[in-house]
Design a protein around this nucleic acid. Structure first.
Lengths: 243, 243
DNA sequence: CGTAAAATTGAGCTGTCTCAATCAATGTGG
DNA sequence: CCACATTGATTGAGACAGCTCAATTTTACG
């Protein structure tokens, strides 16, 4: 598998995708460098690419399917009337944008790209059919929805009752463990394309203050955070701050 | 229907219950003062009462069904390791505790009573069967889950990006509109048994500061808030503060 | 009616914000 | 492939929203 490890990180995005796990997307990953993916799917899907920092779906769009981020990172954002923005969640490669689209066509949020990447939108009717036909598929989606919900609850607790330091530590640990679960820790580091703006909008803080907290982490030798990658140097101490 | 309006507010709790709407709970509401409800249900359920301010379900309890608050108010709470608590949601009479229990038996949160009241726990197996048999039932539960999720998103935005005044105004308006939808506005006021502790734990603030903000509301003739009831005197100005 | 829970008030403090200026990195078009 | 334009990060000084502590009063309830 040396060929695999030489692939750029983005190319392996699909390997941990929920749709593949369920056999709903049988895209064959071609390990060669030059040739594109050979696609042969079981559920109709529409693929498209997105550029970094662009809005992928504007608020109040009606979607005819459920989008999955295949490559790249994205985020779901709520825009307030006072012009401020709050990030609700981050999507790492292979993740569904949100399970709520399985049951509701209209998305009230904005989905914004962080890096550039690609997205596949799976046909809703076929997905719903697959769910009603197959209990395991049903259960997998619904527990994915539960997991989404649990993360939202955690975020509520973070914003309501934790200090800036704790919020940022927890954000880093959360993404770290998701990447770890997806087998994407390499050399003790993960891909981490979030800018301090994203961290600020997710933790309800200011970029200015985020910068100060992160520099405190760096000075305490807790993390390395540069060039779109994150290395946790002292996970115990970071967990302690996150408590 | 003069008899109905004379009933204490709690007694009419079931009228707007999702389970009744779906025909899953055919409890007959007896309008007499003294006699208890006559129960004749289509899904097996276990009824129990709870006292005010007690924990109804402790964290990490395994439930064999989905509980619905029939009478009284309750709240779901996340307890942090640092001893602080964050309220995730309020349940008004007739509401499901959380749809997540349709797909997951273990509840990581604490459910605490606000007032005293009663709860009916509906058998999970039969509920799931009803869901798979009947598409409308399926859809109703799933959009209830979506609504739960949307409220969580709103709360995230509140905590992350709104000021204390805005958070409290929005909490009041949110509960107001839920009560309004359930037809429970009487004399321009709603039942509102939340104490300032609850408001503080839901908005991520301190009871001390909540008290100050609410008194500012009172001085501005925006709301009346006393004796467990809430009256919004100037909804436009309150909405403006909540923007 | 007595006790526990909740609300109020004031004084002082601090975590986080705002503003503003500068510097570094990243991306883009010619 | 370079130069410029854009986006992101850093730093410092000052301000303020909301917190802590603590004492007192009011309300709720068994």
């Amino acid at each position: 598998m040396t060929a695999t490890s030489k692939l750029p990180a983005q190319k392996t995005g699909c390997s941990n995708c929920i749709m593949r796990g369920l056999g709903l997307c049988t895209v064959l990953i071609d390990m060669g460098w030059e040739r594109p993916y050979a696609a042969e799917t079981s559920i109709t899907q529409k693929k498209s690419n997105f550029a970094a920092r662009r809005t992928i779906f504007h608020p109040n769009t009606t979607l005819e399917g459920v989008p999955v981020i295949c490559e790249g990172w994205a985020t779901s954002i709520m825009k307030l009337s006072n012009g401020r923005r709050q990030i609700l969640s981050f999507m790492v490669p292979g993740e569904l944008v949100t399970c709520r689209l399985l049951f509701e066509r209209k998305l009230h949020l904005s989905i914004d790209a962080i890096t550039r990447g690609s997205i596949r939108t799976f046909d809703l009717t076929q997905l719903r059919a697959a769910m009603t036909m197959s209990p395991p598929i049903f259960d997998t989606f619904l527990s994915a929805y539960n997991e989404e919900r649990n993360r939202a609850d955690q975020l509520i607790a973070d914003l309501g009752r934790r200090t800036a330091t704790g919020r940022i530590a927890r954000l880093m640990l959360d993404i770290w463990s998701r990447m770890e679960k997806a087998g994407k820790v390499a050399d003790g580091a993960i891909e981490f394309p979030l800018r301090q703006t994203h961290i600020a909008d997710a933790t309800g803080l200011t970029t200015v203050y985020v910068s100060k907290v992160i520099n405190a982490f760096r000075n305490g030798n807790l993390v390395e955070y540069s060039e779109r990658s994150l290395k946790i140097l002292d996970i115990d101490k970071l967990r302690q701050l996150a408590a």
